[in-house]
Design a protein around this nucleic acid. Sequence first.
DNA 1: CAGCCGTGGGG
DNA 2: TCCCCAAGGCT
Length: 294
Amino acid sequence: MKTNVLAPETLNDWFDEAGRDLPWRRPETTGWGVLVSEIMLQQTPVVRVLPIWSEWLARWPKPSDLAAATAAEVLRAWGKLGYPRRALRLHAAAAAIANKHGDVVPSDVDTLLALPGIGAYTARAVAAFAYGLRAPVVDTNVRRVVARAVHGSAEAGPPSTTRDLADVDALLPQDDAEAARYSAALMELGALICTARTPRCVDCPVLADCAWQRAGRPAYAGPARQAQRFAGTDRQVRGLLLDVLRAAPGPVERARLDLVWRQDAQRDRCLDSLLVDGLMEQTEDGLFALPGEA
DNA sequence: CAGCCGTGGGG
DNA sequence: TCCCCAAGGCT
């Protein structure tokens, strides 16, 4: 049996000492609080999530509270966190939890996976962090830590959910509570020490055993990832359009939206896609509004 | 499975 | 300045 470079005792001890005191990690945080944090944290830095998460939990302490809000209220409260479809999916998930699960966030991974906006990562993160269960929690941090410490590669290869889950499952201790803490520790190590750009290896608790370190820190050899452009994309235009509605007290005229982007065809396409996605609605007199306030 | 879906800060 | 990236999910 191979020894685990990322030994649970080592990681958990380090986490006890160096882990951040984030509000959604506090013992009094409910499953709902954890779920909200996980959705907000998807592709979004912690510092930007912190204030919004606090507002949401104070305003909507239970899933049924969020479910009772209008989509317009939800989207305004989401603000500029980005990827606003996450807010709509969380809104829908809250309704499902309120109606079908007794207003309690499920702890079962498969049940969680059936909810909108909850995928392989988030389902297991909720099971582990909200309910202390043993579940392989694989995010970009964990993938990077495992790639380096275990496989000796500078970066993680292309993601494969099946393989990644099995990879991390093999590292997890058997005990539920210990495994859950270990999952948090693994993520935290990637977030604070084993970072993407310039890892702080001098502070790493597993430096001596790290396979990447032992191999002489070889450069990444895998396929180059495609750079994600933003300027000029539909994503940018949609963001500009939606921002007009978020900032407005109510429905706005088409002319207001026309101001945010010069190219008619692209603007029209984006406007249409926002309507299709349910991120905005058109009133009977042709004005545009956030959904639920028309 | 590759491409798409926001936003802003740091190197 | 520009580019990269930050607790992914969905089609």
